[in-house]
Nucleic acid binder design. Structure first.
Lengths: 109, 109
DNA sequence: TGTTCATATGAATGATTGTTCATATGTTCA
DNA sequence: TGAACATATGAACAATCATTCATATGAACA
């Protein structure tokens, strides 16, 4: 009895992604898989903003925004510029624009 | 007392994404935010495959694969071609390649 | 028709995760 | 130094979700 049903499967044994690569990839996209982070990134694509203003614009608690900014920071999608009492965030990675654009494209079809 | 700290925030009030748009976007990226689905999509980017072969290649249960293929189907990322007893899956959306490529690009930096 | 094989799916479970609450850190200014 | 403000963060809770198990659907074939 054959191991596979499709001929192509034999060749694809070499292309099975490693657990590490697949996980790194999935973790990266998980960052875009949250409503709040999408909103934050959308705003930051327009302009630098401080935490307080993001929270006010999105009508959410400062703490929730801060937690999500941390996720974005850890994934190197945004960077902080401290100025006095406040922290100003900007988009760090130029893939953010491209990826969000792809998402919009897909949804508009 | 001012509502915002940053000047730009006033203008950005018009750009706050709607809950629906942000959620549609996040839901779309959530699909890419899982290790198993990333592996499945990576394989399907190479060739059409039936459920049994995907499960064998990934060394996972048929049921787990079938559940994830349903998610991919519902999000219009793959399509099925029934042939006899088996179901053959292919990538439906050309954004899949682009998005996965962006993910790889980001990770390689 | 009955058996076998391929796939799909519902329910249950364990793990992950976003938000809230409370509080800590750190800056400005009187 | 102390008060007010901006941000960060830990713990707890609720909700979401991927996998497993059991089973159903459906095709092929003897």
């Amino acid at each position: 009895m054959e191991k596979y049903h499709c001929k192509a499967a034999y060749i694809l044994e070499a292309s099975v992604p490693s657990e590490e690569k697949a996980m790194a990839m999935a973790d990266f996209f998980k960052v875009f898989g949250d409503t709040t982070r999408i909103k934050i990134l959308s705003l930051l694509l327009e302009s630098e903003l401080c935490v307080h203003d993001i929270a006010t614009l999105l009508n959410m608690e400062q703490s929730a925004i801060s937690h999500q900014l941390r996720v974005l920071r850890q994934n190197k999608l945004v960077k902080v510029r401290k100025e006095g009492k406040s922290s100003h965030y900007t988009i760090l990675d130029n893939h953010v624009y491209k990826i969000i654009t792809q998402g919009l494209d897909h949804l508009s079809e």
